[in-house]
Each structure stands twice: as structure tokens, then as C-alpha cells.
């Protein structure tokens, strides 16, 4: 897998750590337990396009949002997570 890091350029997937679906957003502190249970545990797990978090730990040390197809592994976009909405 080749991940197009917005800073480093395209790199081998082995340089990155995966952290799953980027869609769930951490609820507000007072959102209550159910909201946190949903945020922490429940996943859409789509077969197709997904926006996900990858960490370029062996590169620029940035968290990325990568748009990838889980059926084909084709990556259509990658951006820095900081300042991007999933």
C-alpha cells in the first residue's frame, strides 16, 4: 500500500499506524455516557469508501485522514487531520 502523505509524499504503508474510522467525533464532555459508548465502540465499518486515521509515525509524525476504499484499497485522498474534517 502506498499512502500519499501530504507532507512527505507517497510512502509505503509500513511507515504508518492505523487507527480506524475517522468519522466518530469525540462528544462534548457533558454529552453523557451513551454518546461516549457510541463514539468509542460503535463503527460503521463500511465496505467501500471510508475516511480513516493513519499516523505517519515513521515519517512526519502527523495524523492523516485518508480516504480509502476497503474493497479495493484504492486511496483517493489524504490530508493532515489537523484542520480537516473527516
Amino acid at each position: 500500500m502506498r499512502i500519499p502523505c501530504p507532507y512527505c509524499g507517497e510512502r509505503d504503508g509500513a511507515e504508518f499506524t492505523y487507527c480506524g474510522d475517522a468519522s466518530p467525533v469525540r462528544p462534548a464532555a457533558d454529552a453523557g455516557e451513551a454518546a461516549f459508548v457510541d463514539y468509542v465502540y460503535m463503527r460503521s465499518n463500511p465496505a467501500g469508501e471510508i475516511s480513516e486515521h493513519w499516523y505517519h509515525g515513521q515519517g512526519c509524525r502527523n495524523w492523516l485522514i485518508v480516504k480509502r476504499n476497503t474493497r479495493t484499497h484504492v486511496i483517493s485522498a489524504a490530508m493532515l487531520a489537523k484542520g480537516s474534517a473527516p
Binding site: 512527505c8 510512502r11 509500513a14 511507515e15 515513521q58 515519517g59 512526519c60
Partner: peptide
Amino acid sequence: AVTTISHIG
């Protein structure tokens, strides 16, 4: 470039 060689950053 920042990368790895032989499992070493």
C-alpha cells in the same frame, strides 16, 4: 526524508 531503514527510524 524521514523514513525507516531496517526497522530503525
